[in-house]
């Protein structure tokens, strides 16, 4: 997928340069982009290490587990059919917690585990069950307690207050999440009971 996107961006740029006669600008941007990429990564590196370090402490000390336990009643509300199934709800709440803390690398394997366990109880073979759909949608609209990358980049471009978008981002993701879940509810018509 991303391969096609990349290809089309490059080809489209070339076509646009023919239309606009902007080959000088195009050449200049190709040369400067390599440096830009390295500079961007350097900017992110510090926070990346800091955050990974902190989250390692959170994981080893059991804080992540604790948060996941605190939130699990809330997650049970979202999956009424699975709420008594600890085998499934375990990875589900760990996955959501990891997302909340911005631990993308930890969240993905937990999410996959949750999907596998949901599939075990689903009567459908290659078709997604309602629970799976709700879970995936939940993952595509994750709330981050602290959007680190955003804050770092804002600061590096001289924002007066790089953190002032954190609360608006929470509100926005909560509304988004509710809409996503509402959509899954509305489109659920097709029952999978059989």
């Amino acid at each position: 997928m991303i391969s096609y996107v990349w290809l089309s961006l490059i080809v489209f740029s070339f076509i646009a340069a023919i239309i606009n006669g902007t080959f000088y600008e195009l050449s200049a941007s190709i040369i400067s982009s390599g440096t830009d990429a390295v500079q961007l990564c350097i900017k992110l590196l510090g926070m990346l290490c800091l955050w990974s370090g902190l989250m390692n402490i959170a994981e080893k000390s059991g804080l992540t587990n604790l948060i996941s336990k605190l939130f699990s009643p809330l997650f049970s509300l979202l999956f009424p059919r699975l709420k008594n199934n600890k085998h499934i709800m375990g990875p589900v709440s760990m996955n959501i917690t990891a997302n909340l803390l911005g631990l993308g690398n930890a969240a993905t394997p937990l999410g996959i585990e949750a999907m596998k366990r949901m599939k075990e109880v689903s009567p459908l073979d290659r078709t997604a069950s309602n629970e799976m759909i709700r879970f995936v949608v939940l993952n595509t609209a994750a709330i981050h307690i602290f959007p680190t990358t955003v804050a770092v980049l804002r600061q590096s471009y001289g924002s007066a207050n790089p953190f002032d978008i954190v609360i608006p981002a929470w509100i926005s993701s909560m509304v988004t999440l509710s809409c996503g879940l509402l959509m899954t509810r509305l489109l659920e018509r097709e029952r999978w009971k059989r």
Binding site: L9, I15, A16, A17, T22, S29, I30, D36
Partner: peptide
Amino acid sequence: GMMRGSGG
């Protein structure tokens, strides 16, 4: 960068 430079 190419998209921006070319006006695309």
